[in-house]
Design a binder for these strands. Structure first.
Lengths: 254, 254
DNA sequence: GCATTTATCAAACGTTTGATTAATAGGATC
DNA sequence: GATCCTATTAATCAAACGTTTGATAAATGC
């Protein structure tokens, strides 16, 4: 009933995408931008996409706008990344791996010398995240906002992002918390971890609300103060949940 | 379900050039949906828009999709609301007022009988929010997710939402916290408030992650347990920030 | 020196978007 | 029974959307 004919193939692109794509720049003479620099185009696309997804959401970001911002031709995005979905995945991949590697390394180092304090543990977990969010020069702050806005969403894309990139380190962290604080039961540990991450994410978002509400007294940008405040808040909260669990146990026993 | 009869919008064009150029309702067969009910159309549009904005973001939600979900004609949305932006505002307006009224009332009642404990204060602030997020039947959970995904964003729409609907109660809450805990300085109080709200929002989002990570032990849906856990975590964290401020003062004095 | 591969481009494709319009039906009022 | 008002409709629009295409300049391999 609908004219689905016409010569457009809806087939998914080949696993080897480059064979059918040919072409070259029209402008050969002077005043071309530094062409022949694949690295740079790819990276600037990823940077622009990161900003766009963070500021506009997945649906609000457009391939055209990303291309314009990255100063590349629109088709380049489909040349380096099959489609919008894949582009989003690679934006996440690029940063999440680095931060989680830092967190894993920090955990390795900590537990190599015995069982650390709760404060040491939480700082090892939260510092890499917060520091990336404060790294304005290398573009981490855009990614931070991106993670924040997706981490509390319930759609499938967000769920997959969490499962693939953040659940593994979460499981390890939760186990570590219970090692440091044995009276923390599983349910409480999971909640404590998610609460702590949520606090860290809220400072990463840098919405400017803290400065607005405090009349400029709060400084979103002071990394060290942010880390120490976040760690202090989280550790106290976690100990409270551990104590709550013990109290409930006592009540049941009596 | 509903008869989307006749008038398919993408029908092949008539062979005979019809005289009528633009719209108008077609044949008035029997079994039309309950026409002449302005209230119902308006409300179902708001409900559908709430769900759409929550699940897809502002950019990802479409007027057509909202109309389909609300089972109204697409043009009805522009009849009741000027445009997409205005529709979003009214979605926020509808719920934010109710929750903040509850929180203000709770504060009034608390301080009428002197200065409350920190636990009483935080429960008064967090319970209405959490309860709305758990009110699946009245659609509050969709709004909860909507607020969560926008509260950590830095775009202009989110900032305006915060300034208009959430900054007033935030200012009052922060002042109340400092009344209850005088050693809490302004900057620490602002941070403590934002941290606590962030924790409450994370449980409102109900992403299912807690259940996944805990192997089903954590139950996102138990309102009372969620409230008591959230309050316990927040209060301990707030007291830690108050103590941190005092310690810093001591260090400076020495 | 020729063939292949890679990187880039402009232009188009069909679809979907937010928005508008003219037509009309139902009820109320006169 | 004509008139008016409000609610609702199908049709239509221009713009923007993600994606595909064919061409081609530059780099690389043999």
């Amino acid at each position: 009933m609908i004219n689905r004919i016409a010569g457009r193939s809806r087939d998914p692109p080949d696993a080897t995408p480059s064979l059918r794509c040919k072409g070259g720049p029209k402008l050969s003479k002077s005043l071309k931008k530094d062409v022949r620099n694949p690295q740079k185009a790819r990276v600037s696309i990823l940077d622009a996409a990161e900003r766009a997804f963070a500021e506009l959401g997945y649906g609000g970001a457009s391939i055209r706008g990303i291309a314009r911002d990255a100063d590349v031709n629109q088709a380049m995005i489909h040349y380096y990344f099959q489609n919008k979905d894949q582009l989003f995945d690679e934006v996440i991949d690029r940063r999440a791996g680095a931060v989680n590697a830092q967190r894993n390394d920090a955990l390795d180092r900590l537990f190599a010398e015995g069982v650390p304090t709760l404060e040491e543990l939480m700082e090892a977990l939260l510092r890499p995240t917060i520091e990336m969010g404060h790294d304005e020069s290398r573009g981490g702050s855009a990614f931070a906002r991106l993670v924040v806005s997706f981490s509390n969403s319930a759609d499938e894309r967000s769920r997959n992002m969490a499962i693939e990139h953040y659940d593994p380190i979460a499981r390890r962290s939760i186990a570590a918390m219970r090692q440091v604080l044995p009276e923390l039961d599983m349910a409480a540990a999971v909640r404590a971890y998610l609460f702590s991450i949520s606090v860290a994410l809220s400072v990463m978002a840098r919405t400017g609300r803290a400065a607005r509400l405090s009349g400029g007294l709060c400084n979103d940008s002071d990394t060290e103060e942010t880390v120490s405040t976040t760690v202090a808040f989280s550790c106290a909260g976690i100990r409270a949940l551990a104590k709550q669990a013990v109290n409930q146990f006592d009540e049941n026993v009596e």
